[in-house]
Design a protein around this nucleic acid. Sequence first.
DNA 1: CTTGCGATCGCCT
DNA 2: GGCGATCGCAAGC
Length: 202
Amino acid sequence: MKTMILNKKFYRHKTLRVAKNLIGKYLVREIDGKKLRVKIVETEAYLGKSDKASHAFKNKRTDRTKYLYRCGGTVYIYLIYGIYYCLNIVTSSVYKPHSVFIRAAEPIEGIKEMKQFRKKNINDLKELTNGPSKLCQSLKLDKTFNGKKVYNPDSELVIMSSENVEKNYKINKSPRINIDYAREDKDKKWRFYLSNSEFCSN
DNA sequence: CTTGCGATCGCCT
DNA sequence: GGCGATCGCAAGC
């Protein structure tokens, strides 16, 4: 079974389902003729209007969050703490500002380049991509990717299916990380991760 | 215009 | 375990 780009329809489903289905898929970044490839091992679902942790809670729509209102498969990247970027993939239908937050991945290809894009000297492989902003550094992703489509073969960032070994994946769930402000939504088990993967965030 | 703060990380103790 | 970095963003005046 060959790996291929996931089509637009993959993202047009319930966000919790897409968040789980993205585990084990490949995130592929093309830069200067080089291919950087990682395997997604940890995600979180953000359910828009009804989710106190979501940037689009109560359908809040601003210059920053407008990308969440586009079709499934659209990139939403935001700046956090003035210095770091975080990657989301829009899901569900247009007008529902849902997304899947990509928290961690396993480096597969282009590791030399990823090490160069991260600031510090990395010896431990998992330190390249075991956090949402570490991942963005390693893949050199920033706000210029906003609005791009991960199902478009011409994009510099696409998501690809994995081999059929994914049938053997055991996926766990837990509450999402660092959303204490979300009150009654903070304990919802909307975080998914590959069981036994050492490449998950801390 | 002003102000308070964050879906993180790395360094410090 | 704690904390500071650093600035875009959104809310409030």
